[in-house]
Simulated assay, not measured.
Amino acid sequence: MKYTFVSVPGLGNKENTFLNIKSKLADYAETYEFNIPEFKIGTLDALVVLSDELVKFDTSFEQSTNKLADLLRTLAKNQGTHIQDLLLVNDKTIDQFIRTFQWNSMKYRTDKSLQETTQLLNQEVTSIDNVMKNKLNIYTQNKNALQTLQRKQTGNLSVKNLNGIVKKQHCILNSEYLTTLIVAVPKSLFKQWNNKYETLTSMVVPRSSAKIAEDDEFGLFTVTVFKRVADEFTHKAREEKFIVRDFVYDEDALRLQQQELEETSAAEKEQQAELVRLAKTNFSEVFASWVHLKALRVFVESVLRYGLPPDFASVAITSPPKFEKKVDETLVAQYGRLGGVHGQSFQKQNDNQEEILDHELNAVNHSDYRPYVQFDLHFEIERR
């Protein structure tokens, strides 16, 4: 999705200028008035400085918009929601918002200086970035905690939680000297385990190993050893690729494990819903700020390009990709004269009427230079 914001001299009648552009592009594009109020201008030197700042803020706002959109796309996929229902601006689709754009004079008063308005826009977007970063960090931590608990429920016997698998009768409990170790043994090493476990260390109870569970990758074995050699046995077992699980039998553990999983899952769902609401609201705010910033850029560049007092007509144009070049050629043919010698040569080059011999001028013609004010806004609702 691409929108092009263009301004040309109004010649004392903005409405006629708009209708002229609309009629010229009628076969290739849709054209809408891009209403920009008059602002307190200040000095031209200050406008030149502001023009450079607006370029940086434009890039920053675009990045903030895309980060929020990417987050919403991920959340929409998780929830089975249509992304179009989340990427709204003031309860309108992006297309509707741009087509009907009106400057929010309640929020951004026109009696303030352009610099103050720009700083206010930037402060709002920066504040939203910080809020979203903190909220996302909290959500990510909880989601990771949930995934860790879920892996313990669903992983193989070398990693999954053993509560409910290891029963009371499998363990020696309340012994002063003996302890039961639970060992995950790869299926290919069952024979090796049975041959070696008694001799890995001293003080291993003979014939104390029994297989209590098995999955596609591992078998779960018990072995009884003296407590004083438990750490040494664990180390020796690891060298043989036998995994001694960190496990202590607890009758309440299974209930507490299920309770923790349910509570963490409920918290994750609640935080995800809150994150969706917050990201949706803040996407609306940031995208609206981005379009307001585009309006400021159009105003500032129009004053610098066309002079004072401000007299220009600004429009928003959208067209299918296959007609974008035709739109550009039509606008250059109509308004190429605005760029002086550069604009005229640019116009003639587009019409294939003459070659540009001057090297510097040729470089200008191959850049993004246009003989009128033009800024583009690119945004994809659905990422390919």
Score class of each variant (00 low, 15 high):
residue 334 Q to K: 13
residue 334 Q to I: 01
residue 336 G to V: 01
residue 336 G to H: 10
residue 336 G to M: 10
residue 337 R to Q: 15
residue 337 R to M: 15
residue 337 R to A: 14
residue 339 G to C: 08
residue 339 G to W: 03
residue 340 G to M: 06
residue 341 V to W: 06
residue 341 V to K: 06
residue 343 G to E: 00
residue 343 G to H: 03
residue 344 Q to C: 11
residue 344 Q to H: 08
residue 344 Q to F: 10
residue 344 Q to D: 14
residue 344 Q to V: 10
residue 344 Q to Y: 11
residue 345 S to N: 15
residue 345 S to C: 05
residue 345 S to E: 12
residue 346 F to S: 13
residue 346 F to C: 07
residue 346 F to R: 10
residue 347 Q to R: 14
residue 348 K to N: 13
residue 348 K to S: 12
residue 349 Q to T: 06
residue 349 Q to R: 15
residue 350 N to F: 13
residue 351 D to E: 09
residue 351 D to C: 07
residue 351 D to R: 14
residue 351 D to F: 14
residue 353 Q to R: 09
residue 354 E to T: 08
residue 354 E to K: 09
residue 354 E to V: 11
residue 354 E to F: 09
residue 355 E to N: 12
residue 355 E to V: 11
residue 355 E to A: 05
residue 356 I to F: 01
residue 357 L to H: 15
residue 358 D to M: 05
residue 359 H to M: 09
residue 359 H to R: 11
residue 359 H to L: 13
residue 361 L to E: 14
residue 361 L to T: 08
residue 361 L to N: 12
residue 362 N to D: 09
residue 363 A to F: 11
residue 364 V to L: 12
residue 368 D to I: 01
residue 369 Y to R: 00
residue 369 Y to F: 12
residue 370 R to D: 00
residue 370 R to I: 06
residue 371 P to F: 02
residue 372 Y to N: 04
residue 373 V to Q: 04
residue 374 Q to L: 14
residue 374 Q to T: 08
residue 374 Q to E: 14
residue 375 F to N: 05
residue 375 F to R: 11
